Amino acid sequence: MAINYHTARFRLVPSLAKALTVVTPPIRKPGTPWVELPRPASSGAELSGHVRIGYARASTARQSLDTQLDSLTAAGVTKIFSEKISTRAVSRPELDRAAEFARELRAASLGVTLVVHEHKRLGRGLALAELAEQLKSYGVALEFLTGELQGNHDPSGFEISLPLDFTM
C-alpha cells in the first residue's frame, strides 16, 4: 500500500522504522485512476551546473557548530545554512531557507545537493522522511557526510553517485 511504505534503508534504522509513513496525494489513493503528477519545471531540462549547499544544526546554544561547519567546508560546500535549535522544534527557519534556496536553484536548471554532516542534524523519524521526500519532489539530492546513512541518497532507497568536483 502506498500510504504506508518502507524503504529497505529506512527499515535498518530503528527510529525511522517505527513510524515511517509517507503522505500520498489524494489522486494516488487506492481505486483512483492513474494520473501523472506534475513534474518540476526543469526536470527535463539539461543541467547547467551543480551546487552543493549545506545545513548545520546544534540542539542548544551551548553546543558548537564548528565540527559540522569544518566538515561541510572540507566537502566543498560553499553556501551553508546553520542554526541552534532543538530537534523537537516544529519550525526550523534555516532549514526551511535551505530547502527553498535548493528549490530555486533547481528551478534554474542547476543540479543541487543538500549536504549535512549527519542525518540526525536534519531530524529523526517521520520528520527526516518527510524532508527527504520534499527534497526529492524538488529534484534535490541529499548527502550525509558521516553516520549510519553516510553517502548520497534518494528517498526511494537507491544510492546515487554524483561527481565530487562541484563549484558554486
Rank of each mutant, 00 (worst) to 15 (best):
R11T: 14
T113M: 04
G139A: 08
L65D: 06
V77E: 07
L114D: 02
R39Q: 15
G139M: 09
L149P: 05
A2S: 03
S71Q: 10
R28D: 10
T87Y: 06
S82C: 04
R106T: 14
L162R: 14
S137M: 07
A58W: 02
P155F: 06
P30G: 04
K79L: 12
I3G: 09
L135T: 08
Q134K: 15
E36P: 09
L72A: 05
K136L: 03
E83I: 02
T21S: 08
A74C: 00
G139L: 09
P30Y: 08
F101Q: 05
D96N: 13
K136A: 15
M1L: 13
S156R: 12
E94M: 15
R97I: 00
G123T: 06
E36N: 10
L131G: 05
K18N: 08
E143M: 12
F166A: 15
T32Q: 13
A45T: 05
P38K: 10
H50N: 07
L122N: 06
T24S: 12
A102E: 09
F144I: 04
A99M: 14
A89P: 03
P30I: 08
T87V: 09
Y138K: 01
G49A: 10
D66A: 14
L69S: 00
H50Q: 14
L126N: 06
A107H: 09
R103Q: 14
E94S: 13
T78V: 09
R52L: 10
I160C: 08
T67V: 10
V35I: 11
S71V: 00
